[in-house]
């Protein structure tokens, strides 16, 4: 048990000691009727946006504004992200994948433990759902369309499957017309979904 097992390269799942305690408690309380799992989920969801992706938005904004940082992020995302003070408790390895006109990146994993919490906060419910993961792999354009994203036919879509060891952060394309904007203003354009790859960065008009 314990936290050390996440370095194993086997393909079964793993829960940390603390996750085991929470799951044990919650499942017993649910069985005995003290807790409604839907109510717990609803409560957790209320916070996911607020807890949210602000750290990740700062990382992306800095990468847009600072070419040297962007290069560092692409070659050693774990260190580049840690330099801003965003450090995972379990020593997860971070990989940043950059969207270009030719290639769009999307991240999947049904396990909530396979999500870059330090940069994105809590995962949204849909990210944890089995349909999202299977459909993202089989029909990424269909899934993107549901999120309101329509990419050119010539853009290749790459799906990145998170593992217990590696968490992915998508660097969305910097919107047109944002030259000269400050990092703080740029960060406002970076949404959670754009860093998962199910969305694009917002246009500057949208936040004015």
């Amino acid at each position: 048990m314990g936290h050390d097992h996440h370095h194993d390269h086997d393909d079964h799942s793993h829960l940390s000691e603390i996750e085991l305690r929470v799951r044990a408690l919650e499942s017993i309380l649910v069985e005995k009727g003290y807790v409604d799992p839907a109510a717990i989920d609803a409560l957790v969801e209320t916070y996911e946006v607020k807890v949210g992706p602000r750290n990740g938005a700062k990382v992306v904004a800095k990468a847009w504004a600072d070419p040297a940082y962007r290069e560092w992020l692409r070659t050693d995302a774990t260190a580049a992200i840690a330099s801003l003070g965003f450090i995972g408790r379990q020593g997860e390895h971070m990989v940043a994948v950059e969207n270009t006109p030719d290639e769009h990146n999307m991240v999947v994993c049904t396990l909530c433990s396979c999500y870059p919490w330090p940069v994105l906060g809590l995962p949204p419910a849909w990210y944890k759902s089995a349909p999202y993961r299977s459909r993202a792999v089989l029909d990424p354009r269909g899934v993107l369309a549901e999120f309101g994203v329509d990419l050119p036919e010539t853009t290749r879509i790459r799906i990145w499957d998170s593992t217990a060891e590696v968490r992915y952060l998508v660097i969305p394309m910097r919107p047109e017309g944002t030259e000269g904007m400050s990092e703080e203003a740029l960060a406002e354009l970076v949404t959670r979904d754009s860093m998962i790859g199910t969305g694009l960065a917002r246009q500057p008009e949208a936040v004015r």
């Binding site: 929470v22 807790v35 109510a39 408790r89 909530c112 433990s113 995962p123």
Partner: peptide, 14 residues
């Protein structure tokens, strides 16, 4: 910081 923290928090409220 992690989902389990929010779950523990939510269990107390519930």
């Amino acid at each position: 910081h992690e989902p389990w923290e929010a779950q523990a928090f939510a269990m107390t409220l519930a």
